[in-house]
Simulated scan of single mutants.
Amino acid sequence: MASSAIPAADLRSFAEYLKGCKRIIALLGAGISASSGLPTFRGAGGLWRSYEATDLATPEAFDANPDLVWQFYSYRRHMALKAQPNRAHYALAELARRNTDFITLTQNVDGLSPRANHPSKQLHHLHGSLFTVKCTSFYCTYSRENDFTDPLVPALAIPDNTPELNPSTDDKTGEVASRSLSQALKGGEIKEADISDERVPLPALSTDVLPHCPKCKEGLLRPGVVWFGESLPSKTLNQVDKWMNAAFVDLILVIGTSSKVYPAAGYVDKARARGARVAVVNMDRNDVGSSGLQPGDWFFQGDAGTIVPELLKGVIGEV
């Protein structure tokens, strides 16, 4: 039975088209993780809202205060692990298993797609992952993926009074994570009332108790995410571009992302240029990217965790 949130005619036309699709790409944003109740960039309860992004998510911040940065990312890892993959993650993973010409490009670092057993060869992380760690030593190439240990080291254990998963449904901080707090305030995406008046006191940790590289024994490990001022992973970009340019593209699924931040937003136009039709799943009809909706596109408004499995059911069955 079709979801009441999906117009029957749109669902029927999409399902008919999907059955004939071979080469499909999905572009994922924070909206798919919101269905799992995951706090957005600055976290639940305002714990990190009083910090500028440049205090927490740059190479310079890590060099100056690795303990502060690691406490922030340990908190994000902890919260991501408390969340569970939702039906949309499982549906996309099942589609990948059934169709080796389907790839997913995610902007999310939360590890929910890997935990839904999405085939790794068909999953590309544009912004890295909270659960990848790598050595900061110039002479060391050590890295490891999908390390879901919590905490990574005893000193990074999350205090018992850490706020639980309780994100606001109108919290926009995840969508403006690429902007500084002052810019977001000026632009109106975040209100003064959303920000803690005081910074939560955090313990000062010596570098001795932070995660160290097991290979070189000297370098500190860092989170394997793309920080502000860093380039996106060229290997990932090249792999996706190679796939995109190899042949005609049938469909791009744009799920839980405004598609306004480049280069991710550019993949919608690239897919269109390769012949793709576009299907958008988003809570906000006005939030469909710089190119907007065009004739022949589909827009499905609502919770990705409910809508995506319904859209794919004709190909993958129930999840």
Rank of each mutant, 00 (worst) to 15 (best):
S3F: 02
S4G: 09
A5I: 04
I6T: 12
Y17R: 04
C21K: 13
A26M: 08
L28W: 14
A30M: 11
I32Q: 00
F41N: 05
G43N: 08
A44N: 01
W48A: 12
S50I: 09
A53E: 03
A57K: 06
F62I: 12
A64H: 14
P66I: 13
D67G: 12
L68S: 08
L68T: 05
V69G: 10
V69S: 12
V69R: 06
W70F: 07
W70T: 00
Y73A: 11
Y73I: 01
Y73T: 04
R77K: 14
A83D: 03
L92K: 00
E94M: 02
R98P: 00
N99T: 01
N99P: 03
N99E: 06
N99H: 12
T100K: 15
N108C: 08
N108M: 09
N108R: 10
V109P: 07
V109E: 05
G111W: 01
L112G: 03
S113L: 11
R115Q: 09
H118Y: 02
P119K: 00
Q122T: 02
H124K: 15
L126W: 09
H127Q: 13
G128F: 12
T132H: 07
V133D: 00
F138Y: 13
E145D: 14
E145V: 06
D147W: 05
L152W: 13
L152E: 02
A155Y: 06
N161I: 01
T162A: 15
P163K: 05
E164V: 15
L165Y: 02
S168M: 11
D170F: 05
K172W: 07
K172P: 03
K172H: 10
A177Q: 07
S182G: 02
E189D: 14
K191I: 00
E192D: 13
E192C: 04
I195L: 15
A204Q: 15
T207H: 04
V209K: 04
V209C: 10
V209E: 08
L210W: 07
L220Y: 11
R222W: 05
V225M: 09
P233H: 09
S234F: 15
S234N: 11
T236K: 08
V240T: 08
K242C: 14
A247D: 14
A247H: 11
A247V: 03
V249E: 14
L251H: 13
I252V: 15
V254W: 00
Y262L: 07
Y262N: 11
G275I: 06
A276R: 02
A276T: 02
R277C: 03
A279P: 06
N282P: 10
M283E: 12
D287E: 15
V288A: 12
S290E: 13
D297Q: 02
G302H: 04
G314V: 03
